[in-house]
Amino acid sequence: MVQHSILVVEDDKEIATILVKFLRERDYQVTWASTGNEGWEDFKSGKYDMAIIDLMLPGMDGFTLCQNIRWSSQIPMLILSARHEEDDKVRGLKIGADDYMTKPFSLRELGARVESQLRRYGRYQEEIHHEDMLEYDGGLTIYPEKKEVILNSNSISLTSKEFSLLLLFCQNPQHAFTKKELYEHIWQQQEVSGNNTVTVHIKSLRDKLKDPLKNPLFIQTLWGQGYRFVGVPKK
């Protein structure tokens, strides 16, 4: 039997202790983080099949954490929150959460929802092929695992940040990213006024991809908004 790995991000120690004990008794491998930033670091350094996230977290809030995880992964996410407002539920689901439970909650119901989400994710994993490469019109090929990028049969050298930007774009085609979102997601720091780090890296990435600004094949500038990936997958 495969042991599923679950990330629990909950700042209330009493609730977290109950959750972790309940899930481990059901043979899940559980990692607990008490802040949003800690949860994001755990997610990036580990491999998880599901995340259970509280909204009201110190540091990075639950909404931002869910958004960061969804930009990088399709694992199921279940939000736990003491907030009952409909707007919070709608916002959570819109940014990529798969389910939402309000506190206090039934452990029995939580267990059933966890099982349901993991079954659904398992079927999803079986239906898709693991992408060992991404190909686009214009001669661009990306190997995510090897962190290798080929343009018209030639290997191009990207910095770690440039590659992270490109992969984030490819994993979220047509999504309009603001400079603030890109900076805070890739650099993991709060953006400050006048920071042109993202602009410089996007320009360098474009130059290496030989991507024209006016008629882009891959990265489009949305003036006054940010950037989005417009690459066409090769059939």
Rank of each mutant, 00 (worst) to 15 (best):
K89Q: 06
K89A: 03
K89F: 02
K89E: 06
R91V: 05
G92E: 02
L93D: 08
L93G: 02
K94F: 15
K94S: 15
K94N: 15
G96P: 04
G96M: 01
A97C: 13
A97Y: 07
A97W: 05
D99Y: 08
D99M: 09
D99H: 13
Y100G: 00
Y100H: 04
T102V: 06
T102R: 00
P104D: 03
P104C: 06
S106D: 06
S106C: 01
R108T: 15
L110T: 06
L110Y: 04
G111C: 08
G111D: 06
R113G: 00
V114M: 01
E115H: 13
S116F: 12
Q117Y: 05
L118K: 01
L118G: 03
L118R: 03
R120H: 08
R120A: 09
Y121W: 10
G122P: 01
R123Y: 09
R123D: 04
Y124M: 09
Q125G: 08
Q125P: 00
Q125W: 02
E126V: 03
E126N: 11
E127P: 02
I128W: 05
I128D: 10
H129S: 15
H130M: 11
H130L: 11
D132W: 07
D132G: 05
M133A: 15
E135T: 15
E135W: 12
E135C: 13
D137M: 15
G138S: 12
G138H: 10
G139S: 12
T141Q: 12
T141L: 12
Y143F: 15
Y143M: 08
P144K: 06
E145C: 11
E145W: 09
K146R: 13
K146Y: 10
K147G: 03
K147A: 10
K147F: 00
E148D: 10
V149H: 04
I150Y: 07
N152L: 05
N152V: 04
S153Q: 12
N154T: 12
S155A: 13
S155Y: 09
I156C: 01
I156H: 05
S157F: 02
S157E: 05
L158C: 03
L158H: 01
T159N: 02
T159E: 06
T159S: 10
S160F: 04
S160C: 02
S160N: 11
K161P: 00
E162V: 08
F163K: 01
F163M: 00
S164C: 08
S164R: 10
L165D: 04
L165H: 03
L166H: 01
L167G: 06
L168W: 01
